[in-house]
Design a protein around this nucleic acid. Structure first.
Length: 480
DNA sequence: TAACATT
């Protein structure tokens, strides 16, 4: 009578038996990995979840059962974190994808292990295929690159299940694509290997490779925002036809995205309408906004909507104009990479364009309002250790009505086009880590600051308009 | 609506 390890919560009834000895691995090793010669896992390997395992069986016991289908890379019985008790299931990764597939078809629901009531479960682990974890959005492709080219690019990272270049109705590439890998691991490998790795011919910025932004909730969020925008327009009849045209454009754009992302289904308009109804019904207004509408006529101040600026880039679709990479020029001085903007010129078009790009980039980088945490270090690490710094009088801007998700990096991004940014700080509630929706940007000269005010004050983001003004001088009590 | 380099 070998006492079961750890005080044993024996399953009721006769102890489960399999052919193998039920050696209770006294050593509670967390897993049995490699065997003899450390095996390598293929890039496209699949992690399997194995359920309905008798609690008496440990890795050693299970191994023979599964080895039949191929070399095992890793096999781990799940144990309760606290009690260490066998949870009746395991994770299993074969070195080869094919082995996993074989095991799945041979075993899943096909056989019941002794002592169990239900047949064994062998299927890709939830972490594997779930959601869009293996589907990538690829941006900044050359317009002339087709599916074949994209495949070639991603092939080294695993098995490509799907590859679609997004195209305009006229067939021209939008410079982006979706690539679906066989597994999450492959997708991650591709991100690691390709994101930012090169700049494709004809692209304005380095390659973008990230998880696709097709999540239902995100779509909802966008809808929600649109609803917000529409709602905002109705009660207060803004005097413009351009406005509704713009809104329509947004809707269509979004719908197109949805359609592209979710495949055939409802027509775009119907889809939008349906989604928006949901939104209204739930009225879940945690309300982070994507910078959907972004426009402000230089000089003419807020309150008017000019002709459409560049179409909105969600997900990197829109025209990501250059300068989306916020490369710090030096330790704490953020340069825009252009010659210092000649602030005399009232023509703000070019920097504005870049500011838009910054916003677009923001949209691309923060598709998930659900994951604020992950937004912590999107930029070069060197962009982080920035001391809050004031520039000279007249160089410091106070910015209010920032989108909730806006962080320092986005702030820099947005104001970079107007001059060298000495510092940019979004204020964060210390308790919640939430942005307080305001911040500061300092330039190294007053003209840049003025230009930025001209261009960005009133800049519409979502339903809000940025407020950009000189920081209140705090005359005497300067703590520095 | 909101609010100025935070503990």
């Amino acid at each position: 009578m070998a006492a079961a390890p750890g005080g044993s919560a024996q399953p009721a009834g006769p102890g489960p038996r399999l052919g193998f000895s039920t050696a209770d691995s006294g050593v509670g090793m967390s897993g049995l990995n490699p065997g003899p010669a450390v095996p390598m896992k293929d890039h496209d390997a699949i992690k399997l979840f194995v359920g309905q395992i008798p609690r008496g069986l440990d890795e050693q016991d299970l191994k023979p059962l599964f080895e039949e289908f191929g070399r095992i890379y890793e096999l781990t019985v799940l144990k309760d974190r606290l009690t260490g008790l066998h949870k009746g299931c395991a994770f299993l990764t074969y070195c080869a994808r094919d082995s996993a597939l074989k095991a799945q078809s041979a075993l899943h629901e096909q056989k019941t292990l002794p002592g169990m009531n239900r047949p064994i479960q062998v299927k890709p682990a939830a972490s594997e295929g779930r959601g869009e974890d293996r589907k990538l959005f690829v941006g900044m492709l050359g317009k002339q690159q087709d599916e074949e080219d994209v495949r070639r690019l991603f092939q080294p990272f695993g098995h490509i299940e799907e590859c679609t270049v997004l195209r305009s109705p006229d067939g021209t590439s939008k410079g982006c694509a979706f690539v679906k890998f066989g597994s999450q691991g492959e997708a991650q490998a591709a991100i690691q290997g390709l994101h930012g790795s090169r700049t494709m011919a004809g692209a304005s910025s380095s390659l973008v490779v990230k998880l696709a932004d097709t999540d239902r909730e995100r779509a909802l969020r966008r809808m929600q925002q649109m609803a917000g925008q529409l709602g905002a327009f109705h009660p207060a009849p803004l005097p413009l036809g351009a406005c509704s045209a713009y809104t329509t454009a947004i809707l269509q754009h979004q719908a197109a995205l949805l359609a592209a992302a979710q495949g055939p289904g409802l027509g775009p308009v119907a889809a939008v309408a349906a989604q928006m109804q949901h939104v209204a019904a739930f009225s879940l207004v945690a309300a982070p906004l994507l910078p959907a509408a972004a426009n402000s006529p230089p000089g003419s101040g807020p309150g008017t909507l000019p002709g459409l600026p560049a179409p909105i880039g969600i997900n990197g679709f829109g025209p990501l104009t250059p300068q989306t990479n916020g490369q710090p020029g030096s330790d704490t001085l953020y340069n825009n990479g252009l010659s210092p903007y000649p602030a005399q010129s009232p023509g703000v078009a070019d920097p504005l364009q870049q500011a838009y790009a910054g916003m677009h980039h923001y949209a691309a980088a923060y598709p998930s309002a659900y994951a604020p945490v992950s937004t912590a270090f999107p930029q070069q690490p060197s962009a982080l250790p920035q001391q809050q710094r004031e520039g000279p009088e007249g160089c410091n801007l106070f910015i209010y009505h920032l989108p909730q998700e806006f962080g320092d990096a986005e702030l820099i991004q947005t104001f970079l086009p107007f001059g060298a940014v000495v510092s940019a700080k979004v204020f964060v509630d210390r308790a919640t880590n939430q942005s307080k929706c305001f911040g500061f940007v300092s330039f190294d000269n007053p003209t840049s600051a003025q230009t930025a005010i001209q261009a960005m004050n009133g800049f519409q983001i979502g339903m809000k308009r940025l407020k950009v003004q000189l920081k209140r001088p705090k005359d005497a009590n300067r703590p520095y």
